[in-house]
């Protein structure tokens, strides 16, 4: 895990949280979309909040795919679940909404889960990955040994 990879994981987290809240905010402004009134979709997309929300979610999808290309699914999903925490903290400190004790417990649990995952390896090493990962493994062990 280098700095760039942590940046991608942070991108997944932030883009998902920001995209959702912007889309949700925009959809509340535009109102309902029903199947027999589909021109509402165009008005919805013209709303700047919805447009930015969709762009952010595309960025989320791109970063999520990037993360999945070099990390396990069981690593990426818990690691990026901090987005829920960000949303709750934004609601509390920027929107001054009430956050119940049960939700604070939820925040604590998610943070704990992320802490658990962060210490472990991000990718399961399969034998078929070949010499490249084997060399990386050896490199990691060597540098770890040197530090000790």
């Amino acid at each position: 895990m280098n700095f760039r990879k942590y940046l991608v994981l942070a991108g997944v987290t932030v883009f998902a949280a920001a995209g959702d809240s912007m889309l949700s905010h925009g959809m509340k402004q535009t109102g309902n979309i029903s199947l027999n009134h589909l021109q509402g979709v165009i008005f919805a997309i013209l709303n700047p909040w919805v447009a930015i929300g969709i762009l952010l979610l595309l960025a989320f999808f791109a970063t999520y795919m990037t993360a999945l290309s070099w990390a396990d699914l069981t690593y990426v999903l818990p690691a990026t679940s901090l987005g829920y925490v960000i949303l709750a903290l934004v609601a509390r400190f920027l929107l001054h909404e009430h956050v119940s004790p049960l939700r604070w417990l939820g925040i604590a649990l998610i943070t704990g889960g992320v802490g658990f995952i962060a210490g472990g390896p991000e990718l399961t090493k399969h034998p078929k990955h070949g010499t490249e990962t084997a060399l990386a493994d050896a490199g990691v062990t060597l540098s770890g040994g040197a530090e000790r």
Binding site: Y84, L102, G106
Partner: peptide, 16 residues
């Protein structure tokens, strides 16, 4: 480690 992380996050998300 990963089971604990997944369960903690699942519980936290359910609460949030």
């Amino acid at each position: 480690r990963r089971w604990i992380a997944a369960s903690l996050v699942a519980a936290g998300v359910a609460l949030l």
